[in-house]
């Protein structure tokens, strides 16, 4: 059964999401999402393509406004927050975008230095030292002078991670941090994420559908549904609880099973969402070429 009740972890939550709903036109992308993220958690949001993971993350970082519901970060309601207050709050968290989102006009080192220049009074020498340290942490020593266009996708992602960590924020959001990375680099990024929570005590919220990463780094996990359960939390818990979760869509997703099956309520599972109806196969060559 879909569940959207807050988890029961004790202690003051860093993030509280309550009954979050978001419509795009007539389409409901997020439907009554509620959860809490506690200090030190590596909170993983997983689910199939189009389930609303990235939309949820955009609501958490305050770049999207929900149709209804509440989001509290560090105890402050951000859905009704004024722009200036939100700006101030944003200084307390870092964000790693799926594409890296490095500023193309700046070098890698300048990108990492940017939050330090903007939000601290450190002198240039100290900023330079911090930037070198951050780049070393992500294995990019010697690449600081390069422009983002001169480095690989994996390096961009690591540079973006270094930028997200520049101010040592207590909260870090990460959108598909390992997408497009080779297995070794995936492990490196996962290790960096683990180090963040274990050594620095940061709280990390990760959106991913990389199951290896999910169980390697996650301490709390939620899964968003697709199809009839679009945008609802269909499972949440610890990695062990998720692995043992009875929901067939969860098991199908974890096992990467293309066949899957239907649950008691006749829910369409992930495969059907992926493959769609027969109409998706009816493309004509001329129609596609005429659009190019």
């Amino acid at each position: 059964m879909p569940s959207s009740t807050p988890d029961s972890t004790v202690g003051e939550p860093i993030i509280e999401v309550d009954s979050l709903v978001r419509h795009f036109g007539t389409q409901k992308v997020l439907d009554g999402v509620s959860f809490k993220v506690h200090a030190g958690d590596t909170f993983v949001i997983m689910g199939g393509s189009g389930c609303g993971k990235s939309t949820l993350l955009r609501h958490l970082i305050g770049t999207e406004k929900p149709t209804s519901g509440s989001i509290k970060i560090f105890g402050q309601e951000i859905t009704t927050m004024r722009a200036e207050a939100l700006q101030k709050l944003r200084g307390r968290y870092g964000m790693l975008f799926q594409s890296g989102a490095l500023l193309q006009s700046l070098t890698v080192a300048e990108n990492v230095a940017l939050p330090l220049i903007e939000h601290t009074q450190l002198d240039a020498g100290l900023i330079d030292t911090v930037v070198k340290m951050k780049l070393e942490q992500v294995g990019l020593t010697g690449h600081g002078h390069k422009k983002p266009s001169e480095i690989s996708g994996g390096m961009k992602k690591r540079a973006a991670l270094a930028r997200a960590l520049a101010l040592d924020p207590p909260l870090v959001f990460s959108d598909e941090p390992t997408a497009g990375l080779d297995p070794i680099m995936t492990a490196v990024v996962d290790e960096l994420t683990q180090r963040l929570t274990q050594k620095i005590g940061a709280t990390v919220v990760v959106v991913t559908h990389d199951m290896n990463s999910v169980f390697r780094i996650g301490t709390r996990i939620i899964m968003l549904g697709t199809g009839p359960n679009q945008g609802r939390i269909i499972a949440q818990g610890t990695p062990e609880e998720i692995k043992a979760h009875p929901h067939p869509a969860v098991q199908q997703f974890i096992n990467g099973d293309p066949e899957g099956g239907a649950d008691d309520s006749g829910e369409l599972l992930y495969r059907e969402t992926l493959l769609g109806s027969n109409e998706t196969g009816r493309y004509s060559r001329s129609a596609i070429l005429s659009k190019s």
């Binding site: 955009r58 970082i61 305050g62 770049t63 700006q87 101030k88 944003r90 200084g91 968290y93 870092g94 964000m95 975008f97 799926q98 594409s99 989102a101 490095l102 500023l103 193309q104 940017l114 939050p115 903007e118 939000h119 930028r163």
Partner: peptide, 12 residues
């Protein structure tokens, strides 16, 4: 390419 969103999130 999400650069503008990145600026917003960096409080710039």
């Amino acid at each position: 390419s999400e650069e503008i969103e990145a600026l917003e999130v960096m409080a710039i």
